[in-house]
Computed example of a mutant assay.
Amino acid sequence: MTLAIAVLVFVTVQRLIELVIARSNTAFLLRRGAYEVGRRHYPLLVVLHASWLAALWWFGWRASVNLTLFALFMVMQVLRVWVLATLGRRWTTRIIVLPGAPLVTNGPFRFLRHPNYCVVIAEIALLPLAFGLPWVALLFSILNALVLWIRMTAENRALGDNGVSHA
């Protein structure tokens, strides 16, 4: 197995595990009286991330991996885990508002309001660049910026109204 394939397997498995965790956490929060905000844009997020991963598999499986850029990507994975661990059961891939819940202000949230989005922005650029695919990095960075603009508008509105428990 090449390093590129190993990296792609790692990222794919990681994302699938995160989807299972997110679904469980969403159900947990909904049972406690939470509600979803921004449901209409969620399919865009799913298509964007699935397409990014598919493009990486399609064009990058035989690539030589730039170890410096890959190391930076792995730093983002550590930061991703920090965000998820800080949020615990409050982390989901959706915008879930739990009325009365205080905003999370510890961990990376001491420094940024949306640390997970910073991680995702970096990941979407770094991994294709590590595979020598600058056009994939550029295309998906632009698409991600558009989707994040929609998402963050909805999330910031929700954060202003209530405590929200979301990355």
Score class of each variant (00 low, 15 high):
156 N>G: 11
149 W>V: 05
123 E>H: 03
157 R>W: 06
65 V>A: 07
157 R>D: 09
45 L>F: 14
86 T>V: 02
99 P>V: 11
107 G>N: 03
49 H>C: 12
166 H>D: 08
18 E>L: 01
109 F>G: 07
142 I>A: 12
76 M>G: 14
1 M>K: 13
101 A>G: 15
139 L>N: 01
76 M>E: 10
36 E>Q: 11
67 L>M: 15
45 L>H: 13
124 I>H: 00
81 V>S: 09
124 I>D: 01
8 L>Q: 14
23 R>C: 06
144 N>R: 12
135 W>P: 13
133 L>Q: 05
148 L>F: 06
100 G>Y: 12
114 H>V: 04
133 L>I: 08
14 Q>L: 15
86 T>C: 02
21 I>C: 11
125 A>Y: 00
79 L>V: 14
57 W>L: 05
133 L>E: 04
2 T>H: 06
6 A>T: 15
13 V>T: 15
98 L>T: 04
114 H>N: 07
75 V>K: 01
123 E>C: 02
114 H>L: 02
57 W>F: 09
67 L>Y: 15
59 F>N: 14
52 W>Y: 06
111 F>M: 06
149 W>P: 01
119 V>I: 07
116 N>W: 04
35 Y>C: 12
99 P>R: 06
94 R>V: 08
112 L>T: 06
162 N>C: 11
87 L>H: 00
93 T>H: 08
6 A>P: 07
91 W>G: 02
116 N>A: 04
133 L>K: 06
78 V>L: 14
15 R>P: 03
33 G>K: 10
42 Y>N: 07
10 F>N: 15
56 L>M: 14
141 S>K: 00
160 G>L: 06
12 T>S: 12
97 V>T: 09
78 V>W: 09
9 V>L: 10
103 L>S: 13
148 L>I: 03
76 M>Q: 15
158 A>D: 12
110 R>L: 07
120 V>T: 05
117 Y>Q: 00
64 S>Y: 12
124 I>S: 01
22 A>I: 06
125 A>K: 00
136 V>R: 03
62 R>E: 15
131 F>H: 03
105 T>G: 08
162 N>I: 08
119 V>T: 01
118 C>W: 13
66 N>Y: 09
122 A>W: 04
76 M>P: 09
112 L>Q: 08
80 R>T: 01
24 S>D: 13
139 L>W: 07
62 R>P: 13
84 L>V: 12
73 F>D: 05
68 T>G: 15
138 L>Y: 10
29 L>F: 01
31 R>D: 07
7 V>Q: 13
142 I>G: 05
87 L>P: 01
146 L>R: 08
108 P>Y: 01
75 V>E: 03
61 W>C: 05
144 N>W: 10
115 P>S: 14
51 S>F: 05
14 Q>K: 05
164 V>W: 01
17 I>N: 14
69 L>F: 03
103 L>C: 11
126 L>P: 07
7 V>M: 06
120 V>I: 11
75 V>Q: 02
13 V>H: 15
86 T>F: 00
17 I>Q: 14
85 A>T: 15
18 E>I: 01
165 S>G: 15
100 G>N: 11
24 S>W: 10
55 A>S: 13
41 H>N: 13
95 I>Q: 03
